[in-house]
Design a protein around this nucleic acid. Structure first.
Length: 130
DNA sequence: CAGATGACTCCCA
DNA sequence: CTGGGAGCCATCT
């Protein structure tokens, strides 16, 4: 039997908090989870994610810091497009529009996680609707 | 215990 | 934009 991996479970819990229609990065998930977890560890956790559990965990909403998909194949991109995520010609998406702001502060407190630092983007308010 | 690997990220040329 | 290199952490040989 595969041993329980508490570090991974915390990562999964954070990913489950990502609402439909938005995406986040490995680094952000790592910061939220905290506890010596970094972007690479998040990737490992999702890679080791069993298929039966992939149905409940929106792993597809986790992408790299460049706004692109690190996985091979079109599976992840297709799933995200189904949720309304738009990709550019280079296969990247605008994190300022589809980027996840992080879980609620109360959730963080209840799960011992760290909320995401507020990124003040003056242009984020002026983003065109298109 | 040491080396290699990976769904990562940042910095610099 | 593209490459190369370093930093980082967990898992497997």
């Amino acid at each position: 039997m595969d041993e329980a991996r508490p570090e991974y479970e915390r990562i999964y819990r954070v990913v489950c908090q990502i609402p439909r229609g938005v995406v986040t990065t490995y680094g952000d998930v790592a910061k939220i989870a905290g506890g010596g977890i970094d972007a690479r560890t998040v990737g490992e956790a999702l890679n080791a994610l069993p298929k039966d559990r992939a149905q409940e965990i929106p792993w597809q909403r986790v992408i790299n810091a460049r706004g692109g998909i690190s996985t091979r194949g079109m599976v992840q991109r297709t799933l995200l497009e189904e949720e309304g995520i738009a990709f550019g010609a280079d296969g990247r998406t605008d994190l300022r529009r589809f980027g996840w702001a992080g879980p609620s502060p109360e959730w963080c407190a209840a799960n011992g996680c760290t909320p995401l630092p507020p990124r003040s983007d003056p242009q984020a308010e002026q983003l065109p609707l298109f």
